[in-house]
Write a protein that binds this DNA or RNA. Sequence first.
DNA 1: TTTATTGCAAAACCTTTGCATGTAT
DNA 2: ATACATGCAAAGGTTTTGCAATAAA
Lengths: 135, 135
Amino acid sequence: MSSEKLKNTGLKITNARLAIFGVFEQEQDKHLSAYNIQDRLKQTNIEISLATIYRVLGQFEEAGLLQRHEFDDDKALYELYDGEHHDHMICNKCSNVIDFIDDDINNRKDKVLEKYNFLMSGHRLVLYGTCNDCR
Amino acid sequence: MSSEKLKNTGLKITNARLAIFGVFEQEQDKHLSAYNIQDRLKQTNIEISLATIYRVLGQFEEAGLLQRHEFDDDKALYELYDGEHHDHMICNKCSNVIDFIDDDINNRKDKVLEKYNFLMSGHRLVLYGTCNDCR
DNA sequence: TTTATTGCAAAACCTTTGCATGTAT
DNA sequence: ATACATGCAAAGGTTTTGCAATAAA
């Protein structure tokens, strides 16, 4: 339940927060910009200002509920954080973002890290191209 | 020589274009924002408007002279395009961007692409962490 | 001379912030 | 009652664009 997860963050349970979190739970597109979220909410006759949406997204990210991504255009997209790292494929045609898990990447990276004496804290892998539906 | 490469693009050879391309050739930091470039040019008493810099960067990218990256903050960085793909490590402390070549990544990606029937046209891998100098 | 390029100022776009009002605890 | 959330309007930063002046071919 949304309210459970929200309660654990220490943030107050407000209509805005419930509504915004709700958008992510109703699993359509999973990668959403602030504007996307406002748009979705309007369709349910819920009006929330962008200022609040941006503030709440930031709080949710800090709380570990959401993950923030910046892909190619310069707007941030958010998605639910599921606890394990996954990577992304982005379709040039339909702009869809597809998650995938890459089991092998950690081993490969280690070689690079060692060579450069780089202490890695995170990584981002994005594949660009044409998705199954658009081929 | 700069002018050779520029000539091949079909773009007119102007002072602005020579100066901007020149900045990338004098190999210090290799990853530069529009503002960085303007700043560097000022140090040589060359004044070029940001409007022009943005336009030229776009043209150079289209011509294949430069590659555009958007890492974490929301400003674009450009670097010379050398014809072969390389990936990036970004240091949290000094913000330096380090290029590296990952020989194995192609094999890894193929599995994923096959599974999702995704036709890849490009990819981006960024490792975040602490670089050798900052450890 | 023709066409492309430049600078300026204004605008577009995404995101953040100050402040006064409203709401959860 | 207190502390936190919200909306509005304004402002921030990066990038784009219309237009008149300028320079390359």
